[in-house]
């Protein structure tokens, strides 16, 4: 049904048995249990997004054994995993890569920043995975941000990276990965994210964000853009006034004055951890 309609709407659309990911001229969608490929010329950005919404993920066909395992398509753990007891899955989304030649170089360059890469592969032309063997010391957030920046500069791309947690490699991994994948897909543009940076907003946006109470409170605390950076910085610096004032390049007394002013205007006291967490949550 759907397929018939799509074939009518897009003269270039074809039902194929398995998609050719290397063909840069077409988009592939998996809809109603069939693969359908449509010429990129016929699909604008918006339509592509819509088609992807009804497609149950164009990625499903790649045969990488890790991908099969992560997606419950094979209960067998990949061969290489015999000696690995913990893994970290790094997901990346790369926009504007020019061709598959650059895809290879991009993934190689990105991998070179990690020490124990077990496998690296593209799932489709924009989305890919690194599997890392549990590495004890990991790059700091700011280093990861600069790394992404470096690659984007050299490749002319716009990339986002999600750093998964370290998990024991067992049959629970696919279930866990499913959520990591969902969290990453909801990130709105941060170049580097992980569970800690995204979990609060993820949970919050699942349920409460649209309640009048929260919308109104959010409007109140964001009435002044100075407050936003103050709350973020206080939160990051664990409410340490000295560090926060240094971060914001303001005098300690100026910061204390602003916290006071905020208290008078909103009734929320940022020196209290409960209130600070609430404000931080509202900014997510």
């Amino acid at each position: 049904m759907v397929i018939d309609q799509l074939l009518k709407m897009y003269p270039s659309a074809k039902v194929v048995t398995s998609p050719n990911w290397n063909d840069q001229l077409v988009f592939n969608y998996h809809i109603a249990d069939k693969w359908i490929s449509i010429s990129k010329d016929d699909v604008d950005d918006k339509q592509n997004k819509l088609l992807n919404l009804i497609s149950d993920h164009a990625e499903t066909e790649i045969i990488n054994s890790w991908w099969q395992f992560l997606n419950h398509r094979s209960s067998e753990m990949p061969l290489a995993s015999k000696k690995i007891d913990k893994i970290k899955v790094v997901q990346f989304h790369v926009d504007d890569l020019e061709s598959s030649e650059y895809s290879n170089q991009w993934i190689r360059a990105f991998s070179s920043f990690f020490e124990r890469v077990v496998d690296s592969f593209w799932v489709n032309s924009e989305y890919g995975i690194l599997i890392l063997n549990n590495s004890e010391v990991f790059m700091e957030h700011s280093e990861l941000v600069s790394t992404v920046q470096l690659l984007d500069e050299d490749f002319g791309t716009k990339s986002q990276v999600y750093i998964g947690q370290t998990w024991p490699l067992d049959e629970n991994v696919p279930e866990i990965f499913k959520l990591e994948k969902r969290i990453f897909s909801q990130n709105d543009g941060d170049p580097v994210s992980n569970l800690s940076t995204d979990v609060i907003s993820f949970m919050f946006n699942q349920s409460l964000a649209n309640e009048k109470l929260f919308i109104t409170l959010k409007n109140i605390i964001t009435s002044n853009s100075e407050y936003i950076s103050m709350i973020r910085s206080l939160y990051i610096n664990q409410n340490n006034i000295a560090k926060t004032s240094k971060d914001l390049y303001v005098h300690r007394n100026t910061l204390l004055y602003r916290i006071d002013k905020f208290n008078r205007e909103t009734g929320l006291n940022l020196k209290s951890m409960d209130d600070l967490v609430l404000c931080h949550l509202l900014l997510c």
Binding site: D96, A109, S112, F113, S142, E143, V145, S146, T147, Q149, L150, D152, E153, D154, G156, K158
Partner: peptide, 28 residues
């Protein structure tokens, strides 16, 4: 798009490719 603006940028935090020489880092 950025790459068509012909602008070079230097940031406060920057990374270099760990396994490339200085020459290659600049040439890449």
């Amino acid at each position: 798009v950025p790459k068509d603006r012909n602008i070079a940028m230097v940031f406060q935090n920057y990374a270099l490719y760990p396994h490339m020489s200085v020459f290659k880092n600049m040439a890449f």
